[in-house]
Design a protein around this nucleic acid. Sequence first.
DNA 1: CGAAAATTTGACATGACTCAACTGGAGTGG
DNA 2: CCACTCCAGTTGAGTCATGTCAAATTTTCG
Lengths: 193, 193
Amino acid sequence: MEQLIAYIRQFVELTDEEISLIAQKTVIRNYPKGHFIVVNGEISHYENFVILGCLRTFTLDSRGQEHIVRFAFNNWWAGDLESFIYQIPAKYNVQCIENSVIARISYSHLEELYEQVPKMERFFRIVIQRAFAACQDRITDNLSLSAKERYQSFRHQYPLLEQKVPQYMVASYLGISKEFLSKIRGEIVCENI
Amino acid sequence: MEQLIAYIRQFVELTDEEISLIAQKTVIRNYPKGHFIVVNGEISHYENFVILGCLRTFTLDSRGQEHIVRFAFNNWWAGDLESFIYQIPAKYNVQCIENSVIARISYSHLEELYEQVPKMERFFRIVIQRAFAACQDRITDNLSLSAKERYQSFRHQYPLLEQKVPQYMVASYLGISKEFLSKIRGEIVCENI
DNA sequence: CGAAAATTTGACATGACTCAACTGGAGTGG
DNA sequence: CCACTCCAGTTGAGTCATGTCAAATTTTCG
């Protein structure tokens, strides 16, 4: 819980009273590897903050193939935002890739929190602004880079993720087949000799 | 200006006093078709709300090709958010595709406004949450759909944009060559006979 | 009307996918 | 400690979607 508070304090100042209000509304939960915290078709009731571990958000397309939209690990948020903010059935699945510790706030608790601690509006505005900017940059990468360049950009941007996440999930995140990613890696190894 | 206020009121309630504070900080400007309101390499000082017209946000890649990250028209925001929030040089260009009317707020005015009218934090939080969710959905489309399906999805989602925006820009937005989009359109016409 | 810009068309090239076979490690159970 | 299985990753052959280039055509607009 201290970790969540410390994270929020990077963006806004909090009094002790505000901290205790946040803590009251927040529940810490442990999930095993493989567990789904959001399931396609069901409404996502929680905003989830990753304290420890690693998760992926993905969809299944019409042919049954998985596409990973994002990963989330330490100090990131995970979930199906669209399902949460509109309280509609989720388009995505969110699953733990590792055993994970999550701090979660329910929809109604968060709305109460916005009223009691208006700074939380500011906090989430800033966090989501940054996430949105990063999301747009990812679109730019997808539009302007080759598969190999995207992979290199990914490695550069998230060196930690590459160790946690199996290769076929990285391929899915980058929008390429696992076989092709394997070939790209082969090429890169050769270049470095 | 009424249009901007009406838009904000969709998300939060405003008193007359708050409206006048917002109006004080906001400047309405007219720009001709072709005008750049953000230029790559320069810091973006304004948050821009499109009252009338149409704009595009794009980058140039290493080979000099344009890639359109987003369009903006009536009641949307336009700009390089990353440049604006961090006050760093812009990665993107933002250009008017039509003669446009923009309401703009400077960085310092907006920060003042957040203090004087905290509801603006809530307003922007909600707007950006929605934009972020839409941005993720676009990534999903890019990962899981073919060029033809993406085009159809685009037409369905933004029927108005197709009329305003030249075809080669639509191709750039979808991440395909203008020639290939032309061929796709040819196919679709045949199918509908 | 004429020039420039946008779109279309066709031939050809290529990046990336599919499918199938193979390799190699990490359990698991006998 | 070995045999077996299972899963992730690799490799290769063939294919397909999409890109590139160049020329022809249509539209836009001064």
